[in-house]
Amino acid sequence: MTFLPWPVLRQLTGPDRTGRGAAARSARTDALAPRTERADKVVPSVCPYCAVGCGQQVFVADGKVTQIEGDPASPISRGRLCPKGSASKQLVTGPHRQTRVLYRRPHGTEWEPLELDRAMDMIADRVVAARRESWQDTVEGKAVNRCMGIAALGGATLDNEENYLIKKLWTALGAVQIENQARI
């Protein structure tokens, strides 16, 4: 601790008249370190919020995400992130994030936890049944080979590669109503 504990006294009596250097420093200031300094590794990623694809650096310490920042090496964003991209750490670590499957039975009023394997089986069964029930071979004598009972609506929280694979999946199943923000 210095003789003059108040920054304003250090500013008025010391060589730092503007109060932007030593006068403004404290023991707490000197002890601060960037959150990114403690990271075990830095993982390159892409912001999940829109179709722009800004580069991100995900800082991981002890297996947990500690910080997400813009990637200066990204030719798209050059290290900058919009407000949503800057807050994307909350998407990963937020306390309200759901980490288990929830299911609400038909005509039910409450959500109940469901095992992931059971949920995946239920989805697969419903996709197969919808495809079987709504398949069209022909319309007015023309071959169409399509499924009118399945539609897909996606968003930009997936990257272009994931949206491309989803588009291929639904097209292979015969769906024609496929839409997402990435516009592939």
Rank of each mutant, 00 (worst) to 15 (best):
Q177A: 13
V58Y: 01
P5H: 08
R97E: 05
D16R: 03
D117K: 15
A24N: 13
V128I: 12
V42I: 14
T157L: 10
D71Y: 06
E69K: 13
E133A: 15
I68V: 13
Q90T: 10
S45H: 14
E112S: 14
A73V: 02
V43D: 00
P44L: 00
G79H: 07
S134H: 15
T157V: 12
E115F: 02
R80C: 01
K41Q: 12
R10S: 10
V144K: 07
G63F: 07
P72C: 03
D137K: 11
A175D: 07
V58W: 01
P7T: 03
V42T: 12
N180Q: 08
N163W: 05
T93C: 06
P75T: 03
R17S: 13
K167I: 00
W6E: 12
L173N: 09
C50E: 04
A31Q: 11
G141Q: 03
A172V: 08
T66Q: 11
W135F: 08
L158G: 03
E112R: 15
N180L: 03
W6M: 05
V128W: 05
T93P: 02
S88G: 04
I123D: 01
V127G: 02
G19Q: 10
G141D: 02
C82R: 04
P5V: 07
R38I: 10
A23W: 09
A27I: 12
R146N: 01
P113W: 02
S26A: 06
Q98Y: 13
T36W: 08
R35A: 06
S45N: 11
G53A: 10
A124Q: 13
E37R: 12
A31E: 10
T171P: 02
Y103R: 15
I150R: 11
P95S: 08
M148E: 14
H96Y: 13
V139D: 06
Q57L: 15
S74F: 04
N145D: 12
V92R: 05
S74I: 06
V8F: 07
A172L: 13
P48H: 01
T66Y: 00
G149V: 10
E162F: 02
G70Q: 10
L114K: 14
T93E: 11
S88E: 09
S74T: 06
G19D: 09
